[in-house]
Each structure stands twice: as C-alpha cells, then as structure tokens.
C-alpha cells in the first residue's frame, strides 16, 4: 500500500512538471498552430537562472528558493516573449517555418547553454526540508514532490481564472476556436500570441526550477527530455485544450511511474503505446476538438 501511495504522489509530482511544460505548448499550438520546439529551452533557461540565483543567495533558505522560482519564471517568460516578438512574428501564419525557427532556436540555445554551463549535470541543493520526507498513509514521500504539485495546481488555477475571467483570456479562447474570425471582429490577435508565449514561457521557467529540485540537478538537456513527454501529453490530452493537458499530464506520469515499478522499467514504452492507442481510437486526443 505504501508503495502505491509513494508511486501516486511521485507520479503526481512528475505530472505537475509535465503540465507546466505542456500547458504552454498546448495553448501556443491551440492559438497559433505552432509546435514550439524551443519550449524545452524556456524550461532550461529558467532552471539555470533559478540555480544561479539560489547559489548566490544561499541555496538552502526558503527565501532563496522563492526568489529562484520567481526569477526562473521571469527569465522563461522574457525569453519566450523575445522569441515570439523577434523570430516567430515575422513569419505570421507560416506555421511550418515557425516550427523550423523553434527547432533552430532549440539547437542553438542548447549548444549555448552547454558552452556556458558545461555539458555535465550541475547538482543542486534546496531548503533542507526538500530532502526530508513526510509520512503519508505509511509512505515516506520526498517533500519536493509536494512543492511541484502545489505549484502546478496554482498555475492551473491561475490559467483557468485568466482564461475565463479576463478579456484577453476570452480572446485566447476564441482564437483557439477560430483565429481568423477573431481578427475579423477587429481584434489584433498577435497581442494574444505574445501573451500565450509569455505565459507558456513563465510556466516552463517555473517548471525548470521545480524540475531541477525534483531531479536534483540542472543540465542543458533537462528541457529537451521533458519536452518529449510534454509533446506526448499534449497529443493525448488534445491539442489546444488546457484541461486536456492537465488530465493527460497526470495520466501519463502515473502510467509511467507504475509501469516503471511493476513492469520492469518499461514506463517510457507504455507511454508511447498509450499514445498509439489514443491515436488509433481518438486521433483528436482525449479532450481535443474534432478537426
């Protein structure tokens, strides 16, 4: 029983990280039709920024952790906004070329990160509480899992409120459905593009800091490895659906954890098989719109 609880909470923690990446990916794809390969770099740059802040302000204090989270999210957001404004925008409506740009950016930035911080993982410390465990129904749960889960839940809540309650949220929801009709109502939808990139970048940057605590290290390849699973999550959840991304994040991460434990470390394959099954029986994803 305690194993199941441990797997559940660890899976939720991993799912939280997936969600922080997938939510932005899914919104960007839903609104703009762009598959953002640079999203992993948003995460990595956030993770490194957070780590740089933490080691300068005393890595083991809660204060430095909170600052590192804020800085990580801010750096991710800035990088993402820059990407949209400078590179993506000039290829308006040329989706494949936009994807190619993000591919090139991902190549270039990962290489740059390797040049700056080296290719080896940098091991990190957080507040002492992180490395302790909490007893939950008999299972000893590493505390950093809870932080990821809480942060992702807050991000989800914030995004839902933003989408439901604000005018820009309304524009984004309408744009996901029918982008050209939004412009035909006299709305400059490009502002919404910058906005989803910024929001997605912030979530990824935040995810980067949390991921570095979850895995215990930062490396230039951190973003890329999470990105692949975030892609799978967005396809399974339904491209463009935030709720879909949330549900699929948790489902994929739990599946992975349980398969890794009970099916001899085959988590990654089980996830790919799940992807194949979803595509065979529901090509638009669990909560995706019918194309």
């Amino acid at each position: 029983m305690s194993t199941v609880i441990l797997l559940l909470v660890t899976g939720l923690g991993l799912g939280a990280l997936y969600f922080l990446v997938a939510s932005g990916l899914s919104l960007i794809y839903g609104l703009m039709g762009v598959l953002n390969f640079a999203h992993g770099s948003f995460l990595t740059v956030g993770a490194f920024a957070g780590w740089e802040v933490a080691r300068r302000t005393g890595a083991d204090s809660w204060f430095s952790f909170l600052v590192s989270i804020l800085i990580g999210a801010a750096v991710g957001a800035l990088f993402a906004a820059f990407t949209e404004l400078v590179l993506i925008r000039r290829l308006y409506e040329r989706h494949i070329e936009q994807v190619l740009i993000t591919v090139g950016l991902s190549l270039a930035t990962v290489a740059l990160f390797e040049g700056i911080w080296g290719t080896d993982p940098v091991f990190i410390d957080g507040p002492a509480w992180f490395s302790q465990t909490t007893n939950l129904l008999g299972a000893q749960i590493p505390n950093d899992r809870f932080i990821s889960i809480i942060a992702a839940a807050l991000v989800l809540l914030g995004m839902v409120l933003f989408l439901k309650r604000t005018r820009y949220g309304m524009i984004i929801r309408a744009g996901v459905e029918n982008r050209s009709m939004v412009t035909a109502l006299g709305i400059d939808v490009r502002k919404a593009f910058t906005l989803v990139f910024t929001i997605g970048g912030a979530a990824a940057g935040l995810g980067g800091v949390l991921a570095s605590h979850y895995f215990g290290y930062v490396s230039p390849l951190l973003g890329g490895s999470l990105l692949i699973f975030a892609f799978i999550v967005t396809v399974i959840g339904g491209l463009g659906s935030l709720t879909g991304a949330a549900v699929a994040s948790v489902a994929v991460a739990l599946l992975q954890q349980f398969a890794n434990f009970y099916l001899f470390g085959t988590g990654d394959f089980v996830v790919v098989i799940a992807l194949a099954l979803v595509l065979l029986f529901r090509p638009s994803g669990l909560l995706g719109r019918k194309s």
């Binding site: 929801r173 309408a174 459905e177 009709m181 412009t183 035909a184 006299g186 939808v189």
Partner: peptide, 23 residues
C-alpha cells in the same frame, strides 16, 4: 491588416455564422 480595417468601420457577418461555439 484585417483587424485594423475592421476597426475603421467594417462589420463582417461570415458565411456559416462562425460564432465561437465554446463561448
């Protein structure tokens, strides 16, 4: 661009309505 000229005073009612179904 479309959004700008619409704001100059063009009202557009598309074929097939194109309402936002989830709004």
């Amino acid at each position: 661009p479309t959004w700008k000229l619409i704001r100059r005073g063009v009202g557009y009612v598309p074929e097939d309505r194109e309402v936002f179904g989830k709004l």
